[in-house]
């Protein structure tokens, strides 16, 4: 029971809904459970009655009629009713060309996220965090970069596979602002269970402000960490817009410090945790493609972590 209860939380649960589709799924789940329970009770009551009834309590004709109704017609009609109740959910939310399109790519073991640039500008790339405006339809274009992953934000909508070479579309609509969490739900390698992400549903005006800020280059200044970042060759895989680092192999780190968590939803955004990940990513995430920096001193890794955590977009007030 305690194991089951440990699944109860507000951030990543089918029952803590903040999206239209998830609300409908939760309602249908309750409806199906109640309907199933009623059918189970009815069948059990009938069985009890049948076992206790004396032999020849009903005639052959009555028995055959009972088989026809309770074995044929009632189940067929009940199942048809349940099918009709569930079908509207299979119809995806309507989407128009004007709706926001966010591209999400699953990689071992993190998420590449791309928003359209504000005012028709260049696309804004970020990682491991998805922000959606509340009350607006958002089309998520999902794909996998290496193996099959699966995108699931239980509070928002159903899950959908991310398949290399294929673009799956998931239409979502958040109904309540807040901070939530999503998780990879298709076994994708050693750190599959450690492949999560943060989801932030925010008011449309705040979302637009955030996107405008996110589109800007990194708010970086000369710091020992910046020099070490370059020295250790981090830029060979990572991009920090506004600096010489433009590689797209690993997650974009432009506004790294503004994310709620580090290492794709696994570590707190704290210097010790980030420094640990920098020195030995494979220790936190087995199978991660980021190499181990065994020769890096603890002081250096902390310097880099401090610089990275300091990368936050300058929020502008409207």
């Amino acid at each position: 029971m305690l194991t089951l209860l440990s699944g109860c939380n507000e951030r990543q649960s089918m029952f803590a809904t903040f999206g239209l589709t998830a609300e409908r799924v939760a309602a249908l789940t309750i409806f199906m459970v109640v309907a199933g329970a009623l059918i189970f009770i009815a069948v059990m009551a009938l069985s009890r009655h049948a076992i206790r009834a004396p032999e020849n309590a009903i005639s052959h004709t009555q028995g055959m009629r009972m088989v026809l109704w309770l074995g044929g017609i009632v189940p067929a009609v009940s199942l048809l009713a349940l099918l009709i109740a569930s079908l509207p959910l299979m119809r995806p939310l309507p989407v128009t060309a004007a709706d926001l399109v966010v591209a999400v790519e699953g990689e071992q073991f993190w998420w590449r996220v791309r928003y359209p640039g504000p005012n028709g500008g260049a696309p804004v790339e970020t990682a491991n965090q998805i922000r959606v405006p509340v009350g607006q339809t958002v089309e998520l274009r999902l794909t996998g970069a290496d193996v099959v992953h699966s995108f699931w934000v239980p509070g928002l909508a159903g899950k959908m596979d991310m398949i290399p070479g294929r673009e799956n579309r998931l239409v979502v609509r958040a109904t309540e602002a807040g901070k939530y969490r999503g998780q990879c739900t298709e076994f994708c390698g050693l750190s599959h269970a450690l492949m999560a992400f943060d989801v932030v549903a925010m008011e449309p005006a705040a979302f637009n402000r955030w996107l405008a800020a996110e589109a800007r280059p990194a708010a970086t200044q000369a710091a020992p960490g910046a020099a070490l970042f370059e020295q250790y060759g981090c830029a060979a895989c990572h991009a920090v817009r506004g600096t010489a680092a433009v590689a797209r192999i690993g997650p974009d780190l432009t506004h790294f410090g503004a994310r709620a968590t580090a290492a794709a939803g696994i570590l707190p955004m704290e210097r010790q945790a980030v420094a640990r990940f920098i020195r030995d990513a494979g220790d936190v995430k087995p199978g991660a493609r980021m190499p181990t920096y065994a020769h890096m001193s603890a002081a250096d890794s902390l310097q880099i972590a401090d610089w990275l955590i300091g990368l936050r977009p300058t929020e502008t007030r409207p």
Binding site: L80, L83, I84, L87, P92
Partner: peptide
């Protein structure tokens, strides 16, 4: 029953 169960999704899910 089979035909009805096949037809209901086809008629309801025009997508």
């Amino acid at each position: 029953v089979g035909v009805v169960f096949t037809a209901v999704p086809a008629v309801m899910l025009t997508d």
